[in-house]
Simulated scan of single mutants.
Amino acid sequence: MAWLHATPKPDERSRRGKAESDAPRRSRIDTLKRKKIDPQMPPNPAPHITTWLIEIGLSEAAGMGAAPLSSREIAAWQDNTCVRLEPWVARLLRKLSAAYLAEGRRAEAETCPPPWRAPVTQRELEVAEAELRNVLG
């Protein structure tokens, strides 16, 4: 999810990176939606855990940006929802939150590949060919 939510930026050392410093950008998911491409996701063997993570929040606000979920935040969610997590699940949620933030930072690179492999769809091929035709004529 972090790769899709990231807003890619060109390398600051490149000509394009220097020229487009303040231009508004779109996240990968917004770009895919505009092109009418359904994002492919990797298999999820534990959808209940990812649902809990999204419900709690993928991260929490910190002094200088986002931080992984704290044990206090997870405990507060448990108290509010009356859901009792096993200790290993609470630790896993913290690790998933930290991984989400790390992947989000890594995925800001324009050339960052997705962290999973998915077959290329016909729609993706059509969009790529149309973009090439626009560039090459």
Rank of each mutant, 00 (worst) to 15 (best):
L4K: 01
C82I: 05
I54V: 14
T7K: 04
A99D: 15
E124I: 04
N44L: 13
P87C: 06
L93H: 09
R72H: 12
T50Y: 15
L4D: 03
R34P: 00
E110V: 07
D38N: 11
E73P: 00
L132V: 05
V83N: 13
L53Q: 14
M1W: 02
R25G: 05
W116T: 05
P45G: 05
R72I: 12
R106K: 12
T121R: 12
A107P: 01
T111Q: 12
L125P: 00
K33E: 14
H48R: 15
H48N: 14
V127Q: 06
A130Q: 12
T50M: 15
E60H: 09
A107C: 06
R94F: 02
M64Y: 10
E20I: 00
S70P: 13
P10H: 04
E73L: 12
N80F: 01
E126A: 11
N134T: 05
E108K: 02
A98G: 11
A109N: 14
E108S: 05
S70M: 14
A102L: 13
A19K: 11
G57P: 10
I49F: 11
A98T: 09
A46E: 15
V120R: 13
A62K: 14
P10C: 03
R28V: 03
E103R: 11
A61M: 12
H5M: 09
R72K: 14
L69I: 07
E73N: 15
V120A: 08
C112E: 15
K35M: 02
R106I: 01
A90C: 08
D38M: 09
Q78R: 08
I49K: 14
L92T: 06
S27Y: 04
A128P: 00
E110M: 09
T51L: 10
R13Y: 04
Y100P: 01
R15K: 10
E55Y: 03
S71F: 10
H5A: 13
V127I: 14
K36A: 10
T31M: 07
A2C: 01
